[in-house]
Write a protein that binds this DNA or RNA. Structure first.
Length: 469
RNA sequence: GGCGGCGUGGCCGAGUGGUUUAGGCAGGGGCCUGCAAAGCCCCGUACGGCGGUUCGAUUCCGCCCGCCGCCUCCA
């Protein structure tokens, strides 16, 4: 039974589902106005792993991830570039999915867009006004946080102390500095929709309330995002749902942020980010997944050239086993693109090491201790090599297959092929084999140097020379 | 000012009240190899500081120091 840390209670507790066997999860996706960076990559990878693990356990997962396609940032960007806001959003969204695909993440099962839900948002805001929880001002409609039972639940702070720390500008029309916009009245040139309060657009927090409840229903299982969304975004979502008398998320799952050298968080506003497209050109995207898998989701990860290089080495160790044992990829042809434990165990003709799978799940069930689970995978790698060295090929195959299976469960594909070897390179390899057969080692070494200069690592195995990049 | 988190061996990074180790990377020794590479075996007696609880704490409690996050937009 999976146990998860819930931000609302601050405790790790059993992940009990609303509907047994089915998981409903909603994660706060991007505002599409610029290129996604490493932090967004972690976002996608963390929830990709959550989803895959739930599926691995045999659960049917609905994974909703919204796209915010109307927002101040988009409007500002459009104005600055002399473009239409919807074009800015559309282009940024294309970039978003390209980057997430490159990371090997499954697409969410549903991707609602804010602009498609405006009428329903208007209904929610009107309902909140009707209930006396929201009020109209000169520039919009605001939620009165005073009217919300338990405001501060996620921030773990009472209303008074939140108010004392508030850095927002004083607005005479707002009853409390913490009151937030549900509806923003349109200024000239801004995208707008009709409403009882005149033309305008929805505030940021409202869309997630409406879309999550529409798609997943009240009391859905899991709501997630980065730790930077806890307050005010998620607090304000919960506040609206509570004020509207709707049951909201049962669990709140927040992951820690990506930090740069020195521990400062990576963010667009600090301008210290690396885009995912840059990352993917400099390293194997699987290395970034492994980097994310090596730390717990609630710990910050430091991404630097050194930590990426470290992950690449680890990846090479995993790939090395796949090469040696010619392991297949359990994700190839997997229904839904996910590995399911029971099916995988049943399908493997020579079996898998079920003890290792159980240990893996024990670690994962403990609030997703992915690093602990991966330690077990690396342990399998060592044991598989040792078995192969000892000539116990069936044992080695079973252990190796298990390692590949568990990597696949976390969305990490191992690569067992050495990559395409071009004709020129193959000729050098053949020449080197011939030289070695004649014990002309000076020539063999010269050829190895030549191959190395071209970026190939040369390995002499029992079946002759093998090269790889 | 309020709230929360973190400080583990050269580096990254889990975990735990005590007889037996996370794991990866780097490093040292050995085996294998024509030499390498890959792989295997062995090696490092780590838990910010000061007190307290305890038979015993890195693990619980308190204080202190340092770092970070949130309280404004942000994955």
């Amino acid at each position: 039974m999976l146990r998860l840390h819930d931000t609302a209670t601050g405790a790790v507790r059993p992940f009990e589902l609303r509907d047994p066997g089915r998981v409903s999860m909603y994660v706060c996706g991007p505002t599409v106005y610029g290129p996604p960076h490493l932090g967004h990559g972690r976002f996608t990878l963390v929830y990709d792993v959550v989803r895959r693990y739930l599926a691995f356990c045999g659960l049917d997962v609905r994974h909703v991830c919204n796209v915010t396609d109307v927002d101040d940032k988009i409007i500002e960007r459009a104005a600055a570039e002399g473009r239409e806001p919807e074009d800015v959003a559309a282009d940024a969204e294309v970039q978003w999915w390209a980057a997430m695909d490159a990371l090997g993440a499954l697409r969410p099962t549903e991707v609602p867009h804010a602009t498609r839900y405006v009428p329903q948002m208007v209904d929610l805001v009107a309902d909140l006004v009707r209930r006396g929880a929201a009020y109209e001002t000169g520039d919009g409609v605001y939620l009165s946080v005073e009217a919300v039972e338990g405001y501060g639940l996620l921030a773990h702070q009472p209303l008074a102390s939140l108010r004392s720390g508030a850095r927002v500008d004083v607005d005479d029309e707002k009853r409390s500095p913490l009151d937030f916009a549900l509806w923003k009245k349109a200024k000239p040139g801004e995208p707008s929709w009709d409403s009882p309060w005149g033309p305008g657009r929805p505030g940021w927090h409202t869309e997630c309330v409406v879309m999550s409840l529409d798609l997943l229903g009240e009391g859905f299982d899991l709501h997630g995002g980065g730790q930077d969304l806890i307050f005010p975004h998620h607090e304000n979502e919960r506040a609206q749902a509570a004020a509207a008398g709707r049951e909201f998320a049962r669990f709140w799952l927040h992951y820690a942020l990506v930090v740069v050298r020195g521990g400062e968080k990576m963010s667009k506003s600090l301008r210290n980010f690396t885009t995912l497209s840059e990352l993917v050109t400099t390293c194997d995207p699987r290395a970034y997944r492994l980097l994310v898998l090596r730390s717990h989701y609630r710990s910050p990860i430091e991404v630097t050239p050194d930590t990426i290089a470290d992950a690449e080495k680890g990846l090479d160790r995993l790939d090395g086993l796949a090469r040696r044992l010619a392991l297949g990829d359990p994700l190839d042809g997997a229904p839904g693109g996910v590995v399911v434990r029971e099916q995988a165990v049943a399908a493997a003709p020579d079996g898998v090491d079920e003890d290792a799978v159980t240990r893996f799940c024990d670690r994962m069930d403990d609030d997703l201790d992915v690093p602990g689970a991966m330690a077990g995978v690396f342990d399998l790698v060592s044991r598989a090599h040792a078995a192969a060295d000892a000539g116990a090929h069936e044992v080695a195959a079973r252990l190796g297959r298990t390692a590949a299976l568990l990597c696949g469960a976390l969305g990490l594909r191992l690569r067992g092929d050495a990559g395409d070897v071009d004709a020129t390179t193959q000729r050098l390899v053949d020449e080197r084999d011939a030289a070695r057969a004649e014990r002309d080692f000076a020539r063999a070494d010269a050829l190895r140097d030549q191959l190395a200069a071209a970026g190939w690592t040369v390995e002499d195995g029992p079946d002759g020379t093998v090269v790889r990049r």
